[in-house]
Deep mutational scan, measured.
Amino acid sequence: MASQGTKRSYEQMETDGERQNATEIRASVGKMIDGIGRFYIQMCTELKLSDYEGRLIQNSLTIERMVLSAFDERRNKYLEEHPSAGKDPKKTGGPIYKRVDRKWMRELVLYDKEEIRRIWRQANNGDDATAGLTHMMIWHSNLNDTTYQRTRALVRTGMDPRMCSLMQGSTLPRRSGAAGAAVKGVGTMVMELIRMIKRGINDRNFWRGENGRKTRSAYERMCNILKGKFQTAAQRAMMDQVRESRNPGNAEIEDLIFLARSALILRGSVAHKSCLPACVYGPAVASGYDFEKEGYSLVGIDPFKLLQNSQVYSLIRPNENPAHKSQLVWMACNSAAFEDLRVLSFIRGTKVSPRGKLSTRGVQIASNENMDAMESSTLELRSRYWAIRTRSGGNTNQQRASAGQISVQPAFSVQRNLPFDKPTIMAAFTGNTEGRTSDMRAEIIRMMEGAKPEEMSFQGRGVFELSDERAANPIVPSFDMSNEGSYFFGDNAEEYDN
C-alpha cells in the first residue's frame, strides 16, 4: 500500500510504541512475548500442572481467558453494579484439565481477579502490559475465525453469508486497541457500523446529549479505520460520505453494504499476525530463551520457528480426527482463516481442507461434555516452508469459486491468482447506482469489472525454506488448481455463540 510509510507498523501498534527502528520493534515485541511466557509459567505453578498438562491447549485457553477477564475493567465495573446470582464479580476462573488415573478430569478453578492481575503485572515488570493482553485477544479471535462461520451475524446486519472472507476479527472485544483495529476485516468494521446506525434509528437519543457526542466521535473513528483499509480513492470518498452524514440511517447502511461487497474484489488491507497460545510461549521462556534479547516478529519467520520446536497437546472428542484438529489450530496460529487453501497447503506441506470436510468441533470443551471418553493427542503445528504475512489485500483475480465463501483475504505475501467468483459478486451490483453516491458507485463498479483474471497478485513473492531466515531465496510455489480455494466452501461450520 502506498501510504505504508505514514502508518505505524503493526509491531508498533502491538507494543504501543512511538516510531521505533526494526531492532527496537523486535525487542519490544519480544518483551511482550516474554511477559506472556513468564505469566503462563507462574500460572502453571499456581495450578500445580504437570509439564504435559501445561502444554494442553484447553488449559492455555482457560488461563488466557482468566487474565483477560481480570483486566476487563468495563465488564468488571458492570458486574459490580449489576450483581447477578451466583456470579462473584471479583473472581474469575474456568475449567482446568488434569490427568488422573490414566483419565482426563475437569476441575473448575476460581481465583481472585486481583490475584491474577498481581501475577500478570509481576510477570511483566510491574506494568499492565496491555500489548500482551491484546495479543491474547487476537489469538482467540484468530481461533474463532478458523472455527466458526459468522453466517447468522452477517444475515442479521443485512449482509450476504458468502462475504465471510471479510469477517476477520469479528469476535475481537471493543477494547483491543490499535492492534485489534489493524486485524479487523472490512466486513467486521461494516458490521460494527451498521449495528451502531441501527441503534440510532431505533433509539432517538442515541446521537443526542453528552453521551451522543461520545457516540458520534466513536462512529467517526470507526469510519476512519474502515476508510484506511480501502485502497481505492472511490471507496475512500464513499467512506467520507458515510462519516460526514448528519443523521446516519438506511442510506448509510446501503452504502456500507455496497462497500463491503466491493471489497470482495477491490480488497481492503487487513493486517495478519501470528499470535500463538500462551502454552507455546511459556515452555520456550522456561527453556531459557530470551525473546527480548533475541527479538521477535509476528509477521516473519519467528512464529514458524517457534511452532517448529513446540509440543502442544489437545483434548480430542471420541469421533474427532486429531489431524483435522491440528489443521484448525495451525490455521489459527498463522492467522489464515480466509487465505486461499492452495497457498496454505503449499506452505504447510500437507493438504489443507475446507472447514466442512474437517471432523472436528471447536477447541474448547463445553462444561456439560462427558470427560470419560476424552483422549488427548499432539497437535501437528509444523510447516514445510515459511512466508511473510501481508497486510495488503493483493490485486484481484477471477477463479472458480464456491457456493460458500466467494473470495479470499490473503494472509501471506505469496504470488498467486486470487480466487473470487466474479459473476456471483457482480450480480449483486445491478441497477442500484442512484442517489448521492452514484458517481462513486459507478466508478467502483467500473474498477471491479476491469479486474483481470490473468493478473498475478504479489508478483514474484515466494515462500522460503525454514533454514532461509533472511528470506534470501524465494520459492514461487505451484498450486494444484483442481483443489478448492475457499475454506468455508459450501460450508456447515458451527455458528459462533458468545
Rank of each mutant, 00 (worst) to 15 (best):
T6R: 00
M13N: 05
G17F: 00
R26W: 04
G35Y: 07
I41E: 10
M43K: 13
K48L: 08
S50Q: 14
E53F: 08
N59C: 02
R65G: 11
V67P: 01
K77W: 00
H82Y: 15
A85C: 10
K87H: 02
I96R: 01
K98F: 04
D101P: 14
D101T: 14
R102M: 09
M105G: 13
L108M: 12
D112V: 08
D128W: 00
A129R: 13
A131I: 04
G132W: 08
G132R: 06
L133A: 08
T134L: 02
M137F: 09
H140T: 10
S141V: 10
N142I: 09
R152A: 04
A153I: 04
V155A: 10
R156G: 08
S165K: 00
G169E: 13
L172R: 03
L172N: 04
L172D: 01
G177T: 02
G177Y: 03
A179N: 07
A179Y: 02
A181D: 08
A182Y: 11
R195E: 10
R195P: 08
K198L: 10
N202F: 11
D203Q: 06
R204S: 01
N205M: 06
G212D: 08
K214A: 12
A218T: 15
C223I: 09
L226S: 14
F230G: 02
T232F: 02
A234D: 15
M239C: 11
N247L: 03
G249T: 04
I253T: 13
E254P: 07
L259R: 03
L259Q: 08
I265R: 00
L266Q: 06
H272Y: 11
H272R: 08
K273C: 03
S274Q: 06
C275A: 14
A278M: 12
K293I: 06
S297C: 11
S297W: 08
V299M: 14
V299N: 14
G300N: 07
D302W: 10
F304W: 00
N309Y: 02
V312Q: 10
S314M: 02
R317V: 05
N319R: 15
N321D: 08
Q327P: 08
Q327T: 04
L328C: 02
S335R: 03
F338T: 12
V343M: 13
L344W: 05
S345F: 04
I347T: 08
R355I: 08
G356Q: 09
L358G: 04
I365C: 06
N368M: 14
A373Q: 03
M374W: 07
E375H: 12
S376D: 03
S377C: 09
L379D: 02
L379F: 10
L381S: 03
G393A: 15
G394M: 04
G394N: 07
N397I: 12
A403L: 04
A403C: 10
S407E: 06
V414G: 00
R416L: 02
F420E: 00
P423Q: 14
F429P: 01
T430I: 01
E434S: 15
S438Q: 06
E443L: 01
R446M: 05
R446D: 15
E449T: 15
G450L: 13
E454V: 14
R461C: 04
V463H: 06
D468G: 03
A472W: 11
P474T: 13
V476L: 13
N483M: 13
D497K: 02
